[in-house]
């Protein structure tokens, strides 16, 4: 084997003349092309993950849900929760940006992979936080409905025959099932997305890491 690798080495070093040759202009043109590196992908997806849920609150229909919080008597506690939520979100954005800036191709392979994984973990924790936050909000709404004795005033229904008790039960079930499905769906998409995106990186990182044992 030694001899064969040596033979390969000798041949390899004579390869230059068979390699493609790009001109100055061809290389120059490449400088302004868009990168499609996974770091770029992580950055773009993360920015979407940070902004999209917050943009939802700008939708006109969302104003109604704030009214509903008020009627359910959970407005104060939900306001507190939102303040905390935004503070934590900004902290995550700051941490994400700081870690993202530390990623450098000048690092050695292992450090580079570690920094990318660390940056992604920041987003992962943010997602876990976001989903937990969503869960707490849903629980709060469910408790609010459960404790409310005039539920038909909060959610005016077009069907006047349905009894208050029955309507309350339907609402509780509907919201519970919807929130569990929604949280599971969002979590599923997130982990699938990053699973695919970082499969190669995780495999290579594990290989380097294994050497240390």
């Amino acid at each position: 084997m030694m001899d064969e690798l040596e033979l390969l080495k000798k041949d390899w070093q004579k390869k230059d003349e068979h390699l493609p040759k790009l001109s100055f202009n061809e290389i120059h043109k490449m400088l302004w092309k868009k990168s499609s590196s996974i770091v770029k992908w992580i950055f773009t997806i993360s920015i979407l993950e940070f902004t999209v849920p917050h943009l939802l609150y700008l939708l006109p229909g969302m104003q109604d849900s704030i009214d509903i919080y008020d009627k359910l008597g959970i407005k104060n506690i939900s306001t507190c929760l939102w303040v905390v939520g935004y503070a934590v979100t900004f902290y995550f954005i700051f941490l994400f940006y700081k870690r993202y800036r530390e990623i450098s191709t000048l690092d050695n392979a292992k450090n580079l992979m570690e920094k990318i994984i660390r940056t992604r973990k920041t987003v992962k924790y943010y997602i876990i936080f976001g989903l937990t936050f969503l869960f707490i909000t849903c629980v709060m709404i469910i408790v609010g409905i459960y404790l409310n004795d005039h539920i038909l005033e909060v959610f005016p229904t077009e069907n006047p025959d349905v009894s208050e008790e029955k309507f309350k039960q339907i609402m509780l079930w509907a919201i519970s099932i919807f929130s569990v499905l929604f949280i599971a769906f969002m979590g599923g998409i997130y982990f699938l997305l990053y699973g695919i995106l970082l499969r190669k990186l995780n495999k290579n990182y594990k290989e380097l890491k294994q050497l240390e044992v």
Partner: peptide, 17 residues
Amino acid sequence: WMYRVALNTAITLYRKS
């Protein structure tokens, strides 16, 4: 310097489009 950046790109950053 090129060896490092080129290998890092090939191993870690590059995604087949």
